[in-house]
């Protein structure tokens, strides 16, 4: 795909908790409308990387730019930046004391100070889109994992973010619920949303990605188009990683 303007730029990012770097010198760009999929073994730093992008983790070196503005500085107003960067977590993190609708409305009404009726209208539209309009008045605990995650996606979407971060959003789900969440994400991708996705679902990664980034040991080992990456990866480490994965899948089938 022909490169549109850069939405998010990361230059030489280093993350260190004080006992050796977790992320060493990461640089990459995300263009408008692009879907970037991060894969790699557990502990490779992919989730940490995602959390650095919206300031949930501080970084020790390098810089992050959104729309050409540095957002990794000391004076960053994160609450403004985070309205432009939506994030969905592995463990949903809905607010258990609020109904589905109130969960979704918290951001628009408290952060963006939008009028409640207008926000409700949009929330209902989005809920309809993910097939959960009938659940708007229930509490999170009354939902299945897949439903919770779709609500969490709506909660992020209603802020009209420029880019969405997905942190292993299907990892905590029962297998039969994975699909409903991935379908929502696929639809978003087709609608032109800019997304950075951390996932273990290889087939999904292949289907949704414009660009696959393989992280291992805190660095980018390979960055490639999905057909090439999954077809014939350039590096041994990527090949090895993909092999393990297939083996695990075979194993599952054998069960």
């Amino acid at each position: 795909m022909e490169k549109s303007e850069k939405l998010l730029e990361v230059h030489h990012l280093r993350k260190d908790y004080g006992n050796g770097p977790v992320l060493k010198d990461i640089s990459l760009d995300v263009h408008k409308g692009e879907v970037l999929v991060l894969i790699g073994p557990s502990g490779c730093g992919k989730s940490t990387f995602l959390r650095c992008l919206n300031g949930l983790e501080s970084i020790q070196a390098g810089e992050i730019l959104l729309d050409g503005h540095v957002i990794s500085g000391e004076k960053t107003k994160w609450s403004e930046v985070r309205q432009k960067i939506g994030m969905v977590f592995q463990s949903y993190e809905l607010f258990p004391h609020m109904t589905v609708l109130d969960n979704i409305l918290l951001g628009p009404t408290k952060v963006q100070k939008r009028k409640r009726p207008e926000a409700i209208e949009e929330a209902e539209k989005l809920l309809e889109r993910v097939g959960l309009l009938d659940k708007k008045d229930v509490y999170p605990r009354q939902l299945s994992g897949g439903q919770k995650q779709r609500v969490a996606i709506v909660r992020a979407l209603i802020m009209k973010p420029e880019i969405m971060l997905f942190d292993e959003v299907t990892a905590a789900l029962d297998p039969e619920m994975v699909r409903e969440v991935l379908d929502v994400m696929l639809e978003l991708a087709r609608g032109g949303s800019t997304m950075v996705i951390v996932t273990h679902e290889m087939q999904f990664a292949r289907a949704v990605a414009d660009q696959v980034v393989f992280l291992d040991g805190g660095e980018i080992v390979e960055m490639n188009a999905p057909e090439e990456f999954f077809g014939c990866p350039k590096t041994d480490r990527a090949q090895k990683f993909l092999n393990t994965f297939t083996f695990e899948k075979e194993d599952e089938k054998a069960e």
């Binding site: 919206n54 949930l56 977590f89």
Partner: peptide, 10 residues
């Protein structure tokens, strides 16, 4: 829970 609140810009 704090993080997910921060993530929507609160």
């Amino acid at each position: 829970q704090m993080e997910s609140g921060l993530a929507i810009g609160l």
